[in-house]
Structure formats: structure tokens, C-alpha cells
Nucleic acid binder design. Sequence first.
DNA 1: CCCCGTAAAAATGTATACATTTTTCAAAAG
DNA 2: CTTTTGAAAAATGTATACATTTTTACGGGG
Lengths: 208, 208
Amino acid sequence: MTLYEQIKSDLQQGRLRPGTVLKQTELAQRYNVSRIPVRDALQRLKSEGWLAPHGKRGVAVPQFDPLEVEDLYWMRAQLEPLLLRFAADRLSGETLGRARDILDSMERQPDLSAAAIGDLNWQFHACLYRAAQRSTLFATVEQLNRQYERYIGYQSRSLDYQRTSQREHYAMLDALQKGDGEAAATLLERHIAAAGRKLLAHLRDSRS
Amino acid sequence: MTLYEQIKSDLQQGRLRPGTVLKQTELAQRYNVSRIPVRDALQRLKSEGWLAPHGKRGVAVPQFDPLEVEDLYWMRAQLEPLLLRFAADRLSGETLGRARDILDSMERQPDLSAAAIGDLNWQFHACLYRAAQRSTLFATVEQLNRQYERYIGYQSRSLDYQRTSQREHYAMLDALQKGDGEAAATLLERHIAAAGRKLLAHLRDSRS
DNA sequence: CCCCGTAAAAATGTATACATTTTTCAAAAG
DNA sequence: CTTTTGAAAAATGTATACATTTTTACGGGG
């Protein structure tokens, strides 16, 4: 596991709490490395929204922010359906197959961690988006999804919601297989909006 | 001037040409610094689209890509009008004044460099967007604009186009001053789309 | 003639040491 | 008692040196 992944995992699991100011020296000791790789990891984590600038120098673990979630989901709801429309014309049977495999594997494994679910989720979407061959649009969408990972702990793991989410995924895939990209894009937009509302509700509940 | 700015300027002015593979050691010698600050600058430039990964290690100066321009402008046309709508309700007289000052100063200076025009352009837009107090949305928009800077050399500097562009800016500002955020947002969307078409045409001309 | 494996070289990753900047804290002035 | 100032301490920025990985090039085998 790289240093970047280690720090990210500590952020995800609350071992580094919002509000904490991170010192390169402390982190270097904590992970038994020198400050050079720490600097690299911090810069990357900062660019992905896991850390925020703190004063003139230094970084801090940012608070959870409902407004950030709203922005992220709104942007995703705008950009991802377009990407899917571009992809629709170019989807090979093999790609659709791989996407279905990912969904099936989620189905098979009953209780994955929130992080694992989030990862497979992205793998599924990314697998379709890549087919669009729009690397710039894809890169931005990927970044938004990475930024949203920070909130993955608040994602509902209720079996109920998982079922709904999976049903929407399969419906999208079916539409694509029929060649109806437009329908798939509409489903996707609703899927993202619904997930956003769900996450916001959870966030507001658990922090009020 | 920081190292980051120096390298960026060399990229902008073609002293580092598309296709070139950059070596940390070479750059360190070229700019008379050690490899540590070079690494930092390269990572940042990479995250802003000025450089692209090259193989497993190392970075290269990317080719100019019309598809990238299309994606950037399309995303900007989607995201920025929303940001302006959010801002519209919160614009103070002072903010509007500062925005107008920026436009006026562009008017006063007849022949600025493409880079200088681009910078003032962004200052104008950013000044309005900041009022929305949507930091996540703002950050994404800012990144898209920075990414687009790479193509600023292809921006038309014809007096004709500059006039059109300025007229659109003033029209937007007038709409905002009248409190008509909706009209301003519509103008902005068209403004971005028009600028995108213009840039694409130039790019295709000069490289065919 | 081409391909593959291996060793040398070149490039990047990381640690340590030093330089510079920022922050902190205490003492003195108002 | 509050504010200011300045020196010590702490943190980050940078250089040099070493470690590891990747690339390159050469020579032998197929």
C-alpha cells in the first residue's frame, strides 16, 4: 500500500479527524518515511479534496460540508449523462459484459464495506464512460467521483437502498444493450440525483 | 517568479514543445534548482493539464487536442452559468464595481498579450463567481479555466473579436446590475459557446 | 536476421542535512 | 491590562547524497 493510500485510508476511517492540522514532520514519523514522499502525498490529497490549505502553509483535514456534496452531485448529474451518451454509440459487447460482471459480483457479495461498494460502483461507471473516448471529460468526472469518496462513509448501506441502486444500474445496462443511449442517460441522471439526496439526508441526520 | 510559473511560461511560449519528454534532471539544470521543487512543479502542472503522464514514469508535453477544447468549453458552458445564477442574488455593488473596473482596464489597454488578456478575462469572471460562495463548484470551474489556458495562444486577438467579446461582457454586467440573473446566465452560456467555436476554428486552421 | 536475456546507465524515488520562513511566546512599553 | 516587538522554536522549502527502478544497448543463441 502506497503512502498516499495509507493516509487516505486513515482519513476515510476517521483516524485523522476533521479540523486536524497536519504537519509533514508528524506524518513522516507516523508512517516511518521521510518528508519527501509525505509532501507528494499531501499535494495529491489536496488536489483531490481530501485535504484543504490551512493558512499560508500547511494543510488541514476539512470538515464535512453539505454544500460540497450538493455541488459534487449536481456537477455529476450534469456531466455524466453526457459522457454516457457519447459512450452509447461505441459500446462493444465485451465492455457491456464486463460492466455486467461488476454488477453481478456486487450482487454476489452481500456485505462489503462502504469503501468496497463505492469502488465497485465507480468501476462500473468508469468502464462504460471510458468507451466514450473523451479523456478530458472523463478525467473531470473521475476527479469529481474521487472527491466524493470522502463522504462514502455516510452512504446508506441499508439493504433497501442497495437493492434500489442495483436495480437502477441493471435498468441502465439493459437500455444500453437495446441501443437506447438516451434512455440510459436519463436513468443515469435520476440515479445520481437520487444518490445525492440520500447522501445529503444521511449527512444532515448524523451531524445535527 | 516561481518555478511553476517559469515552466508554465516556457510551455505557453513554445520553448517546451508538444511531444517533448521532460526529465527532472534536465529541468533542474535548466532552471538552476534541485529536483525537489521540480517534482512539485511537475505534479501541479500535470494536475492542471499542462503536462501528461508518459509511460510508467515521467511526463511529456501533450499535443494540442481539439477534442480537449470541445470538452472544456462544453463543461464550462454547463457549469459557469449555474455558478453565475447562484452569484446573482448575492452580488454587492462593490463586487459589480470591481468587475466593471477589470473590463474598463482591458478597454484602456489596446494591445495586451494573449496571456494577459486571458488572465484579466478570468479575473473578471472569477470576481463574479466568488460571490456565489460555492467553493467546490468554483474550484472545478477554476480548474477548467486553468486547463484551457494552454490553448490561449490560439485565441483570436483580432480587434474585431475582442470588441464582440467585450460587448458580451458588458451586456452580462448590465443584466446583473438590473438584477436579472437569468438573462446574464443565458448571455454567459452563449458567450462561452461562441468563444469555444472561435478557438476551435483557429486551432483547426493553424494546424491543418 | 531477429529475438531475447542480461548488464550498464540513466532516471526517478527516498533519506538526510541545511536554509528560509512562519509561528509562538514572553517581556517590555503604552 | 492590553498591545507590541523581537528572539527562540517549529515548520516548511530546498539541496545533496543514496537507493531503487526503468530503460537502453550489446552480445549470444535460435
